[in-house]
């Protein structure tokens, strides 16, 4: 889901995104990352608090935050 959302938003074709990929290494800046988060929030109908976003570095970090909100 991250890959699809990121591709749509940043309009880049990401060849290999793994869970331990650092998001900024994909050429996605901080605001781009927030856009991806916003889109995932809308699609999954969840709300991620700002403080949970601060520590996100890797794709896994983001997916963990999303999982946590889904199961909350």
């Amino acid at each position: 889901m991250f890959e699809k959302t990121a591709t749509e938003i940043v309009e880049k074709d990401f060849k290999t995104i793994e869970e331990n990929t650092v998001i900024s290494d994909l050429g996605i800046d901080s605001l781009g990352m927030l856009e991806i988060v916003g889109s995932m929030e809308r699609q999954l109908k969840i709300q991620i608090p700002d403080e949970a976003l601060a520590g996100i570095q890797t794709v896994r970090d983001l997916l963990e935050v999303v999982d946590k909100r889904q199961s909350a």
Binding site: S30, D50, E51, A54, Q57
Partner: peptide, 10 residues
């Protein structure tokens, strides 16, 4: 980056 978001940006 985390501090930037937590303490400055948000």
């Amino acid at each position: 980056r985390a501090v930037f978001f937590q303490k400055i940006f948000f």
